[in-house]
Design a protein around this nucleic acid. Structure first.
Length: 861
RNA sequence: GUGGGCGUGGCGGAAUUGGUAGACGCAAGGGACUUAAAAUCCCUCGAUCUUUGAUCGUACGGGUUCGAUUCCCGUCGCCCACACCA
């Protein structure tokens, strides 16, 4: 019986309305079922969704729908990371208010996301630019401040003198402002910081417990935190300006304290700056050092340069031992104390420097088997490898670097001139942004009282709407009235802080807010504690360090200010790959996939321009980007194929953690599969509605149905969606013949009906609209999205007979089908009786027969 | 440079963690149906050879093992991250 093609354009909106009106995906906080919190990283409302969003939200939705079917109370919310610079850029370029621009984009993107059929609880939706949200963020800030987690720090910013504004690093192009083209200046500004370094040790140690995070991300965070243990001490200074009596230094290699031949400081070191005041050469050298370091490539190739200050430092263990003090371009002010001790024999960088400036090289330790001194390659063995120490604090001996480091530390501490210290690379989180479109920092500057927090009763500090972006500078700062305020402490004239918060602050707790977005306090503690941590967080690898580290810090800070009772916000983390696409280049530049036609003759693909047939070069496969024009618009795909096809494509073939290549052929294939499922089920629907006959006749169907159900469930739980899809293909292939038969005869067995029920349940998380349509077609009444995941019957998973591959000397020569419970000797006897075994053995006795039960047999002859 | 990962057909990728290599899909070729097309269905599809079979084959070279895509050593190549971190 022929049926009409499945029409997603009609079916999909119908089912979305049905889910909506049943409020199927609205989650209650007091639901007694076990909880499961699925969260995809929320989007920035840039204007339209892109294929990367489609992939991200499909992955999360498959999991959310599956968990819901498995009986969990699933929280799957959505919101908007809505503050940030693009809104201000749009305001300047198109004269749109950032607020209007942002909320319009949100409206567009919400509609687009809804067309994907996601099982989201839209009742919890918020944007970080909603006053209700940033109001609570200001409450958190004030609590953090009271707890001592907020500080002030003077740090350098990129200042655009024409636009009168601070620039982010990415807005500085070749040393010039991206808009004005003016040469960027370095200015020092007092900035607000969160004291993330207070938690450095905990943030590092706790990474061990995050066993459902990718190892790669944990490593990246550990490196970012960058813990090192070593010796802290001070050099004495000879010939230094007044006020510089000693020079504090940190070294991770106390075992090499008897091998240094120079000391060096950063160009930004206070001593270097002091020296520059009276010495133009030093001033020029420092300036030169500062200019290097804008791009990674320059740093890589930069030659190690030093400037001999003429000052001598004295060794702490022996004041008569002096070393020259250099200013060096490879010493960083930000790390340690901005001063190093140079031990050329055992550090390649120090050695290069010593050779360049003709400094001596003292070997601290030598290899066990050679007396060869260091030449132009530093001797840097593993710290676990024993070496002969010849120049160190103790008697010459053989030991590992670890042993020597620990013994040296002990002795130096006892001698009283050095202390054991732990250094972190991690720095405090600067959150001040001199911009309008962000959460205002709720602080007040008063001439007489200093810095005072806005009382909670006076919150929120709202952004003023009447701002203009015509003139340069921060609109909050030049607003006629906004910043003028009475001091909450003395009542005198005071002024508001005009900095707003880094948008990473907004995204550091939105996942907690989702647990009770209606609450007056930042959190409903009970709800937050019940829902958190997020069971599965899904997003791009680009957030591996900052967003995730800040969120981990923020959750701890919220714990320590009484808003939640946990430290780690994300139990499981999954980093998905990108959506990539071929690029196409014509005589006048890149062209979009929609503008070309691809033909394939015997595997040779050529492309021509649709408009005039001119040849187009097929380029490399790259991340979808507007500049390369290799983008595919999700709206176009959903319009022409439907959301289910787009969703299926996103999870087929490529493992979710890898990049997926979007191709027309692949989209067609996914669409064919959607149609195929529909056709097979719809054509057999009459029989399937009223199954007849006995179940026993369909053993093969029952077996594959139950087996597939088991495996697909397991695969989804592992987020191995590509494998789950392959399993479903196999099942559909197997059901093809019985369903075609059922369509012809108009009858179906209960087993076939059950297999179809399983199939519908399994496609439901992936292709939810199609599943509903099929389910209704076979007479289902309630919605599939509200139904439970079926249970497989384990008895169908075991066969009474197994087919074992038979190897002779490790090479497969045939099969043996035998009773599943046949014992070893029975298997051996049966194997030896096989023709090809007999032939191979030529009458000899086998040396050995290896029988791996239910797996394989290997005859060694 | 340091750290991590990876290398399987024309392509995306499977392979129950040592047990039949290439599931499933794409592309390609052949066929059926059709006046024709679309759609659908069937067949072939790692390489080589003396082609009802055999040999080789998971980047390359060794090793362990009855048996290696999987474990070990070495070489080559690719990708990612961090990067003058004292």
């Amino acid at each position: 019986m022929p049926v009409e093609r499945y029409n997603p354009r009609a079916a999909e909106p119908k089912w979305r309305e049905a889910w909506d009106s049943a409020k199927l995906f609205e989650t209650k906080n007091n639901d007694p079922r076990p909880k499961y919190y699925v969260l995809e990283m929320f989007p920035y409302p840039s204007g339209r969704i892109h294929m990367g969003h489609v992939r991200n939200y499909t992955l999360g939705d498959v999991l959310a729908r599956y968990r819901k079917a498995k009986g969990f109370n699933v929280l799957h919310p959505m919101g908007w990371d809505a503050f940030g610079m693009p809104a201000e850029n749009a305001a300047m370029q198109n004269k749109v208010h950032p607020k209007d621009w942002t909320y319009q984009n949100i409206a567009t993107m919400r509609t687009q996301l809804k067309s994907m059929g996601l099982s989201l609880d839209w009742s919890r939706e918020f944007a970080t630019c909603d006053v209700d949200y940033y109001h609570r963020q200001q409450m958190l800030f004030i609590d953090f401040q009271a707890k001592g987690l907020v500080g002030r720090k003077v740090s350098k910013v990129n200042w655009d003198p024409v636009d009168q504004t601070v620039l982010a690093n990415e807005q500085v192009i070749d040393g010039r402002g991206w808009r004005s083209g003016a040469e960027v200046e370095q200015r020092e500004l007092a900035q607000w910081v969160f004291k993330i370094t207070d938690y450095a040790q905990d943030l590092l140690e706790s990474l061990d417990g995050l066993d459902q995070w990718p190892e790669k991300v944990r490593t990246m965070q550990a490196n970012w935190i960058g813990k090192s243990e070593g010796l802290s001490f001070s050099f004495g200074l000879v010939g230094a300006p007044d006020g510089f009596d000693t020079l504090p230094v940190f070294t991770t290699r106390p075992d090499t304290m008897y091998g240094p031949t120079f000391a060096a400081i950063a160009a930004d070191h206070p001593l270097a700056k002091k020296l520059a005041e009276n010495n133009p050469d030093i001033a020029a050298f420092n300036e030169q050092c500062r200019r290097i370091g804008t791009s990674a490539a320059e740093i890589e190739t930069a030659e190690k340069l030093g400037f001999d200050t003429g000052i001598k430092v004295t060794h702490p263990a022996d004041p008569s031992w002096t070393l020259p003090l250099f200013i060096a371009n490879f010493v960083l002010m930000d790390y340690g104390t901005g001063a190093i001790i140079g031990c050329p024999a055992h550090d390649q960088r120090d050695l290069d420097f010593a050779r360049k400036y003709d400094l001596p090289v003292i070997d601290v330790f030598l290899p066990l088997d050679s007396d060869e001194r260091v030449g132009n390659t530093a001797f840097v063995p593993l710290k676990t490898q024993p070496v002969r120490y010849v120049q160190w604090v103790g008697e010459p001996c053989t030991q590992t670097a670890y042993e020597a480091m620990s013994r040296s530390l002990e002795i130096f501490e006892k001698d009283g001139w050095g202390t054991r210290e732990t250094q972190f690379r991690l720095r405090d989180w600067g959150i001040s942004r001199q911009r309008y479109w962000g959460c205002p920092i709720p602080m007040i500057h008063c001439e007489s009282c200093g810095i005072v927090a806005v009382p909670k009763a006076d919150l929120p500090v709202k952004l003023p709407d009447d701002v203009d972006f015509e003139t340069p500078g921060n609109p909050l700062d030049r607003h006629p009235t906004w910043k003028h305020v009475k001091c909450p402490s003395c009542g005198g004239e005071a002024r508001r802080e005009t900095d707003t918060m880094d948008t990473f602050v907004d995204s550091s707790w939105y996942f907690t807010r989702f647990t009770a977005p209606w609450e007056n306090e930042p959190t409903d503690r009970k709800a937050a504690n019940e829902w958190m941590p997020v069971d599965q967080y899904i997003g791009g690898i680009e957030h591996a360090i900052l967003h995730l580290l800040y969120s981990r810090f923020f959750t701890r800070a919220m714990r320590d200010t009484g808003h939640v009772d946990l430290a780690e916000p994300f139990k499981g983390l999954f980093t998905q790959g990108m959506v990539v696409h071929e690029t196409y280049k014509g005589p006048s530049g890149w062209v979009t996939p929609a503008e070309i036609k691809i033909s394939d003759v015997d595997g040779k693909r050529t492309a021509t321009l649709l408009s005039d047939g001119s040849p187009i070069e097929i380029g490399s496969i790259e991340k979808m980007s507007k500049s390369k024009k290799n983008v595919v618009d999700p709206d176009d795909i959903i319009d022409s194929y439907g959301a289910d096809t787009a969703r299926l494509f996103m999870i087929s073939d490529s493992p979710p953690e890898r990049d997926v290549i979007w191709t027309e052929a692949g989209a067609d294939a996914s669409h064919r599969f959607v149609q195929r499922i529909w056709r097979l089920i719809a054509e057999a629907a009459d029989g399937l509605k009223a199954p007849q006959g006995t179940a026993a006749s369909d053993q093969t169907v029952a077996k594959i149905a139950h087996r597939t159900l088991k495996h697909v469930g397991e695969d989804i739980e592992k987020l191995a969606f590509n494998k789950a899809v392959a399993r479903i293909y196999e099942l559909v292939n197997a059901l093809h013949a019985p369903l075609t038969e059922a369509a012809l005869t108009g009858t179906a067995s209960p087993t076939l009906r059950q297999a179809v029920d399983f199939l519908i349940a399994m496609i439901a998380p992936m292709m939810p609209h199609l599943a509903e349509e099929c389910w209704a077609e076979v007479g289902g009444t309630e919605m599939v999205a509200a139904r439970a995941w079926p249970d497989f019957d384990p008895s169908f998973l075991v066969d009474n007979e197994v087919t074992l591959p038979i190897q002779i000397n490790g090479k497969k020569r045939g099969d043996l089908t035998i009773a599943r419970d046949a014992d070893q000797s029975a298997v051996e006897a049966a194997v030896l009786a096989l023709d090809f075994v007999q032939a191979a053995l030529e009458g000899r006795q086998p040396k050995k027969i290896i029988v791996v039960p239910q797996r394989i047999v290997n005859v060694v002859g």
